[in-house]
């Protein structure tokens, strides 16, 4: 069964911080990959896998599970780290990220790792797949399962998203809850410079979705927003989660240049120190 209300917010914050440290270790070890997005979304993923989702890490194919789709596959280090901490596999395997023969591919490949619901990487296909899953659930009168889809904000440049956004509203797919990582960066710069998205909230609303904006680095807010979204019964829901890219590592925070690169050894050491000490506020546990 799921992990509902097993953890306090304090515990969840601690888990998110552990996940961030693993993300840094994984990326440094892999030598390539994306840093900012995974760190920024660690709180949302912790909220999902340790509170919101109805799932069973020991039985990933459980027929009544909620479905989580990662549309922006490049932030998969946070998904792997979260899944490992949730019990899908041993955290030791995290260090195989991006290595030959690893189940932890550079972008997620469903068939290799139980618990992954889809293959992704090329942007703009998660919402469409969510629509297919949601439609199938409607056809089968399944009302107790939810589909959560994480997308990037830059990802919304892809027109295929808006095809899916229209479809979900047309068919009133209230079983879909999209979570947009609104961190205002993409690979070439700020989202509003590369391709302006604002007024993003109004865009979704005018397409027929129920819209909430939350602080995506506040686990309690994310949990509450998902509860609210599940209460909406006649339209799909989107939660625009405002996150800090690179969250927890001061030299990465808000800097778009960390979107698509990993830390080197020295940077990883500094990042881990920042994460253990909560940016120097507390004394670190040196492991």
């Amino acid at each position: 069964m799921g992990n509902k209300r097993t953890y306090t917010i304090t515990q969840l914050n601690k888990i998110a911080q552990d996940i961030r440290q693993d993300i840094i270790r994984m990326l440094e070890h892999a030598g390539s990959g994306h840093s900012a997005g995974p760190l920024g979304m660690a709180d949302v993923f912790t909220a999902l896998y340790f509170d919101i989702l109805n799932h069973d890490p020991k039985n990933p194919d459980w027929a009544d599970r909620d479905i989580f789709l990662l549309s922006n596959g490049h932030i998969v280090p946070v998904l792997y780290a979260t899944m490992a901490h949730a019990g899908y596999f041993n955290t030791k395997e995290l260090m195989t990220l991006r290595q030959f023969g690893s189940r932890l591919q550079g972008h997620p490949e469903r068939k290799l790792l139980p618990g992954l619901e889809s293959t992704s990487g090329p942007l703009g296909s998660g919402l469409g797949q969510a629509c297919g899953i949601g439609l199938a659930m409607h056809m089968d009168n399944v009302t107790h399962r939810w589909i959560y889809v994480a997308t990037g904000d830059g990802e919304l440049n892809e027109g295929s998203n808006w095809e899916a956004i229209m479809l979900a509203a047309k068919y009133k797919l209230s079983n879909i809850i999209a979570i947009v990582d609104r961190n205002y960066i993409q690979i070439d710069g700020g989202t509003e410079d590369v391709m302006p998205l604002e007024d993003l909230s109004s865009k979704w609303e005018s397409f027929g979705w129920h819209v909430q904006e939350v602080d995506g680095n506040n686990i309690e807010s994310v949990i509450d927003a998902c509860s609210m979204a599940r209460a909406i019964t006649n339209q799909p829901s989107v939660i625009i989660a405002h996150t800090i890219p690179g969250k927890g590592v001061p030299f990465m925070e808000y800097d778009f240049r960390w979107h698509g690169i990993p830390p080197d050894k020295a940077q990883a050491k500094e990042a881990l120190h920042d994460l253990r000490t909560l940016k120097g506020k507390i004394e670190g546990e040196h492991q």
């Binding site: 619901e117 469409g128 797949q129 297919g132 199938a136 295929s160 479809l167 068919y171």
Partner: peptide
């Protein structure tokens, strides 16, 4: 048992993939 996705072939394929995931 019919879904009309509109003039949107990219979504046609993604939606079909999602339905296959649910054993349709």
């Amino acid at each position: 048992r019919f879904i009309e996705v509109g003039i949107a072939e990219q979504n046609l394929v993604a939606v079909a993939s999602g339905m296959a995931a649910m054993n349709k």
